[in-house]
Nucleic acid binder design. Sequence first.
DNA 1: CATGAATGAGGGTTCATTCAT
DNA 2: TATGAATGAACCCTCATTCAT
Lengths: 225, 225, 225, 225
Amino acid sequence: MTEAAGRDATDGATPRQETRSRLPPEARMPQILEAAIEEFAERGYAGARMAAVASRAGIAKGLIYHYFPSKAELFQASIAACARPIFEDAERRLSGFQGSARQLLADLIGLAYARIREEQRERALFRLILTEAERVPALAEFYRREILERALGIAQAVLRAGIASGEFRPAAAALPGLAAVIMAPAVAGSVWQMILGDAAPDLAAMQAAHLDLLLAGLGAGGPAG
Amino acid sequence: MTEAAGRDATDGATPRQETRSRLPPEARMPQILEAAIEEFAERGYAGARMAAVASRAGIAKGLIYHYFPSKAELFQASIAACARPIFEDAERRLSGFQGSARQLLADLIGLAYARIREEQRERALFRLILTEAERVPALAEFYRREILERALGIAQAVLRAGIASGEFRPAAAALPGLAAVIMAPAVAGSVWQMILGDAAPDLAAMQAAHLDLLLAGLGAGGPAG
Amino acid sequence: MTEAAGRDATDGATPRQETRSRLPPEARMPQILEAAIEEFAERGYAGARMAAVASRAGIAKGLIYHYFPSKAELFQASIAACARPIFEDAERRLSGFQGSARQLLADLIGLAYARIREEQRERALFRLILTEAERVPALAEFYRREILERALGIAQAVLRAGIASGEFRPAAAALPGLAAVIMAPAVAGSVWQMILGDAAPDLAAMQAAHLDLLLAGLGAGGPAG
Amino acid sequence: MTEAAGRDATDGATPRQETRSRLPPEARMPQILEAAIEEFAERGYAGARMAAVASRAGIAKGLIYHYFPSKAELFQASIAACARPIFEDAERRLSGFQGSARQLLADLIGLAYARIREEQRERALFRLILTEAERVPALAEFYRREILERALGIAQAVLRAGIASGEFRPAAAALPGLAAVIMAPAVAGSVWQMILGDAAPDLAAMQAAHLDLLLAGLGAGGPAG
DNA sequence: CATGAATGAGGGTTCATTCAT
DNA sequence: TATGAATGAACCCTCATTCAT
């Protein structure tokens, strides 16, 4: 997206300060990774071109190979660079929470939708996972371990808390697929964002309906209770 | 090293001795499209190779170009070939339905999960859409028009029917994001299937929890009511 | 050396019969191998360029890869193509020989120098062996088995025959290094040809001196006898 | 991935704290040449990498260019560095020799085989000459002038001495190729060593047979005498 | 209609060389 | 003097596309 200013146009007017910049590795590597994440996310692994990565990073193609031995390793490193503790926030909020389970649920849903809306980087990671999971099993495993399992764990914890406090109907504990269903709208919402952008279902409306449905569906007066 | 290749084709003198099955376009095109869908779904557009499509179809590379002028057009045609009336079934069931809205909801959810589990072809299409939507706007548009909008329409219809019959709480009508939330677990489920295969959350459990949550959450005694 | 006429010059006068020729594999492969042998022999493995091989063969670069999967395999195949029974001639002559051992020796030496002078292909092979033996152990092994051992065997056979007939002094049998020494001038001669071309020591003069020295040194009246 | 590199050099402010051994050209050049000779001998000119030369020399890539303007010139210099008076020893021994020509011949042959066996550096030079002579005419010329001609001169001198003293048959003088044939086994022996290493014909056995053959073949009672 | 040999435009990668530090 | 980041020109190889047969 940054589309580094091409070097093709010798525009003659500006006095060419296109000099070599010589950054230390600590500065250059993130620059390349950033460019790579963008390129891979937009084009997929096969469609990405090393030249485009270099161009986005504003460097020569060959320089990439001073930092990463191959396209495949650059890809792996790009994934790793995205793989920050995505749910740290949510888990901290969960463990320290004092109020009602209903309030906690509302909080966490708010957090999830906020990330979907705002986190550029995570959207790219999600696209890469969807696109390349079949080709790179490590990606699928990463998604399962770092994203799906942790999100399910959080959902389970909230459910348990709500049942314990009497806010949620006890029968909810008997539904093994419930945690997945609870978090599903956020997943679908981010898929739609990814595919459709502005034409996707409105996230704010989804968030409101999502919370409403959960509160109603989990409430103590539910049908299975 | 000797690669005993070639030469088994028509050699001009002998009047056609073992030409490969000379099929009319009506028979050959689906064969090629089938192969192309598989290849594109497995490798993505950039990763797909025309030679592999030909090989899957059991024909020579060159023959593809008698039916499709380019890889890009073959891709478009592959998409179109998937674009069969995915929701025809559901819409027919919807329009002719006699029973309760709760029963209708259960039926349609059952239908949806069955397709997710079984329809090889649709899974491939979904993968292509996820993978290539950014690069091929027509794909995103196809998804919006043929899949998302129709699914949302069905969900809205069920909601309206349930509200009209008094089965669902009237407040549901005031939540514009509800239709999307209602169908979201099926979308998330198919994404997980795609990424994780057998490691994905169990679809049967999701289906049960999904239905249970909806019935409870939409029921007349809900919170927003 | 053939340096196929480049296709860069659209000369406008000649009606361009630079049409694609479509040879069967049986005809194209030797053509490529021939070109490859030349290129590898002249530049060594690392120095050889696939583009140059293609150019020598008068074909496009990519076509090589229809016949050989990589530069390394093309190299191996080039070696194999040279590896014809180099000493078949000499061994046949040896086994059927009727005259004196001195005459046989003269014959075989004549044969050896004739090959050094004339065999284009063998010179290339020898150069490749010298150049790449360290990098490609199979080359060294090929030289040992197919060239050195067979040549030594022939020399031993002649020695034995001459000793048996009383033409050569019996003490020659007691010198294990003698066979190697006997054939050495031919090897040195071909090395010098390879390095120096016309500036190399004259092969005819060497041949005469070689034979003379052997006849004198192996003769029955020698010092060690 | 972090490549904790660079930065340990002079940074302009602090007055030189841990600059790497700052050597004068007289000390640095041999170090580089030594490394270059190894690398060129092992990989050939095209296969050699400047980075590998630097690494062998324990310096940075760029420093090579302070001493040699290009790879080609480094190669030339490497050759020149090998070009020490290879035959100085032999020529000194020749000019001061007092004993019989037979003894002199034995001495010189012993010297030659000893060098083949022991001189690492000369083996590398010889390999370079064989490998690159066609591409670098100066190499062939160097070989002709500094090695072949001088060796032939020594052989001629010994021959003349032996004929003059009556030890060798006079007819030997009439064979222009004889000097080359006399030295040839040593050349062949070193080629075999180079290609085959331990699988080469035994040098000690060759040396014995070589000397024996020469003494017998050059002796006064020979056939052409 | 059908084949697969043939082409040629890149894409990934290497490496001699330069140059800011 | 010394470093190694940075460049860019090839090089090997792939693959969509063409076309003689």
